[in-house]
C-alpha cells in the first residue's frame, strides 16, 4: 500500500475534486478520477516533499474551530478599521516574534492561517534565527499579539506535528 499509494489523503482529495468538477458519481468517472489521481500522487512522490507525521490529528478539529472564530472576529475588526481609515489612520506596524516551530509543514500551515486571517500578514521567516516578521493592521499592544499567536496557533500546531 505504501509503495503504490504514498499519499492516501492526497489521493482521496484529488479524487473528490475530480468528482466534484464532473458532478457525477458514475463508475466511469470514479475509475478515470482514480487513475488521474494515482498519476498525480506518483508525480508528487517524485517531487519528494517533506513528510511530517501527525502526532495528534484529533487536535486539528478544535484548531479549525479557533480559526473560523478568529477569521470571523478579525473580519469585523478589519472592517471597522477600514471604515474609520479616513478620519484616523490605522496604527499598523511590523512585529517580530520568535516561533518555536521546526516542521516545514507546520510552518506552512501557520503562514496560511496568519495570512488568511485579516489583520495579520506573514512577511518573512528566518529558519536560522527562527524570527518571524509579521505585519499587523491594528498594532496597539505588541505583547498581546505575540501571546495570542503563540497561544492560539503555535502551541496547538506544535502538539499536532510533534
Amino acid at each position: 500500500m505504501r509503495v503504490w499509494l504514498p499519499y492516501p489523503l492526497l489521493f482521496l482529495g484529488l479524487l473528490i475534486v475530480w468528482l466534484l468538477i464532473n458532478q457525477s458519481l458514475s463508475p466511469g468517472q470514479i475509475v478515470l478520477g482514480a487513475i488521474l489521481s494515482a498519476l498525480l500522487v506518483w508525480i508528487m512522490g517524485n517531487l519528494q516533499p517533506h513528510k511530517s507525521t501527525l502526532r495528534r490529528a484529533g487536535l486539528l478539529l478544535p484548531l479549525a474551530g479557533h480559526i473560523a472564530v478568529d477569521v470571523f472576529r478579525s473580519n469585523l475588526a478589519v472592517m471597522k478599521v477600514i471604515l474609520k481609515a479616513g478620519r484616523h489612520p490605522a496604527n499598523s506596524g511590523f512585529l517580530t516574534m520568535k516561533i518555536e516551530l521546526e516542521d516545514e509543514n507546520a510552518l506552512a500551515m501557520l503562514a496560511c492561517i496568519l495570512t488568511a486571517t485579516p489583520g495579520t500578514a506573514w512577511l518573512e521567516h528566518d529558519r536560522q534565527t527562527k524570527l518571524l516578521t509579521l505585519h499587523v493592521l491594528d498594532l496597539e499592544n505588541e505583547q498581546y499579539w505575540i501571546d495570542l499567536i503563540t497561544r492560539r496557533y503555535v502551541t496547538p500546531l506544535k502538539e499536532i506535528f510533534g
Partner: peptide, 13 residues
C-alpha cells in the same frame, strides 16, 4: 489605506 503593507490586509476580506 495608506501604505502597501496595510493594503495587503484588504483583499483577505
Amino acid at each position: 489605506l495608506d501604505s502597501f503593507y496595510s493594503r495587503l490586509h484588504a483583499p483577505t476580506l
